[in-house]
Design a protein around this nucleic acid. Structure first.
Lengths: 156, 156
DNA sequence: TATTGTTATACTCTATAACTATA
DNA sequence: TATAGTTATAGAGTATAACAATA
């Protein structure tokens, strides 16, 4: 803006210091990716977490809640409401595990499998659009860096 | 685990489908970076958001709250409590903008500047440690990808 | 009329402690 | 005793509507 009153305070904001940090860059880019994903999933009434849970249940039918929480890197209590939601919508069901009446075996319903397929296709397409300026080698390089960061964390 | 009961449900969880997605990889890596940053800032009683706000105020003394919210990509109402917190700790102050009695000119105190310097140094060091397996060219490649994603968002 | 900062509110994600029912 | 799932709760981040003061 060419508003002269702005000049009495600050015209151009410098975030040079923050942009030096990988974490800050990552947060900003992740916010974009996350917003795009949320927008894409809205149509299926899924969020990033319910989507992740559904995909993992479809790919691993019969897994337990504690295994799923582990895989998703969230606490067990926080998974309960996600599973409640997916179950209420009849996208998955809580089967009993034979020989261990404490645990549930999570399984997708047919509707869950179908919604999952559609959502995966939609997310794939939207991500492709979002990353259309990023060629395969750049994507691979970025993915490698993220893998290294994850690994560094797991190794302590 | 070699627990035979696990075998009746699922032994090894496959997250192959999810790992195909750039967004999922990014979320996992970002969680690591974010946790590391939070740990680093704990010592200064700062969080990622209060840290970002403080750095921006130190680098741009006199900026308005609405400008800061813009720069941080957060909504104006959410900035208020962050500024309240930094002001209460006397790290910044709300000065009046001459000729516009609606707005505040945010300025760091000496204590704020000093804490900011220390925090920036600590974050730099911790980030260096976190990324020690990632060489300069890999970092640059990853940063480029993140810039492109951000740009893609700004351009619509 | 429009803008700055504010209040109130609500939703999501995250984290911990404590409970129940099983093992 | 330990584990699976659950409940309750609290903190943090995010988003919108509506308001007072001021432009």
């Amino acid at each position: 803006m060419s508003n002269p009153q702005r000049k009495q305070t600050v015209t151009e904001i410098s975030d040079a210091t923050l942009r030096q940090f990988f974490g800050y860059r990552m947060k900003r880019a992740f916010n974009v990716v996350q917003a795009d994903l949320a927008q894409t999933l809205k149509r299926y009434e899924l969020r990033m977490l319910t989507y992740s849970a559904l995909v993992l249940i479809v790919d691993n039918p019969g897994l337990r809640q504690s295994q799923l929480a582990d895989a998703m890197d969230i606490e067990r209590p926080n998974l309960v409401v996600l599973i409640d939601e997916l179950e209420r919508r009849e996208l998955i069901l809580r089967d009993r595990v034979p020989n261990d009446r404490r645990a549930y075996a999570l399984k997708p319903t047919l509707a869950g499998q179908q919604l999952c397929s559609q959502a995966v296709a939609a997310v794939t397409a939207h991500e492709e659009a979002l990353l259309q300026d990023v060629d395969a080698s750049e994507r691979a390089a970025a993915t490698d860096v993220m893998k290294k960061i994850e690994r560094r964390y797991r190794d302590g």
